[in-house]
Simulated scan of single mutants.
Amino acid sequence: MKIGYARVSTHDQTLDLQIDALNADGCDRIFTDEGVSGAKSSRPEWDKCLDQLRKGDVLVIWKLDRAGRSTKHLIEVSEFLEFKGVELRSIQDQIDTSTAMGKFFFRTMASIAELERDIIKERTEAGLKAARARGRKGGRKKTVTKGQELEAKRLAEAGEMPITEICKQVGISRATYYRLVD
């Protein structure tokens, strides 16, 4: 049986390209994860996919980085599949672990996927450092004004209103209230 797996890291991305390729490859069943990083070893549909695999099955992925981003994790996956008697096929990378060259190429590509992830991480950190050097601060802009904060604290200290009323009057969420008052 051919079992396919597709994943996108953000909800802005679409699975269509990967699913079309998996269907064209003849997958009998396809598992998909949306908004889940390949760096995470545990992904809901990935875990179900691995659980479904039986001896003689072929796990088909669109590209190697869909299965994972670290060499260590990809090699663990490879060893798990080998233990279960399951072959791995990566459509874009043209990897087929049923051959010695396929296994070698798999490990090489796993190293490249990890390198790519590390380079992206380094670029991001360098960009944030450069932005901080120019006086920019990262993170989300504050949505609560100083006036809202002071008013929430004043009303809380007075103790005359329930928290729900304070939140409505000031225009903040309950979680924000607790963050400000505590």
Rank of each mutant, 00 (worst) to 15 (best):
A152R: 01
E122N: 15
V58L: 12
I112W: 05
I61D: 03
K84Y: 09
G127P: 06
G85L: 06
I91S: 04
N23W: 03
A39Q: 06
D57H: 14
R174S: 06
S78R: 13
T145E: 08
L53I: 05
G85W: 07
L59K: 14
G26S: 04
F105I: 05
K55Y: 11
Q13M: 00
V60L: 05
Q94M: 08
G4E: 05
E149M: 10
T176F: 02
K141Y: 05
D20T: 12
G138R: 01
K129P: 01
K142T: 10
R7P: 11
G4W: 07
A100L: 10
R69A: 03
T10P: 13
V170S: 07
S9H: 05
T14V: 10
G38I: 03
A126N: 14
Y178Q: 07
A100P: 06
R117S: 08
T32S: 15
V181Y: 04
R54S: 13
G38L: 03
D12S: 11
V170C: 04
D28Q: 14
D96Q: 00
R123Y: 10
L180T: 03
L74N: 01
V86N: 04
G159A: 12
V8E: 09
E149Y: 03
R140Q: 01
N23Q: 13
A175F: 05
I120N: 03
I75E: 11
I95T: 07
T164R: 14
K141W: 02
G171Q: 09
G26D: 03
L50S: 10
M109K: 00
V58K: 01
P162V: 14
F83R: 13
I119Q: 03
E45R: 12
D96C: 02
L59V: 10
E160M: 11
E160V: 09
P162W: 06
A152H: 01
E34V: 10
A152T: 02
V86M: 04
G147Q: 12
D28I: 00
L180H: 02
S173Q: 10
I95C: 06
L64Q: 01
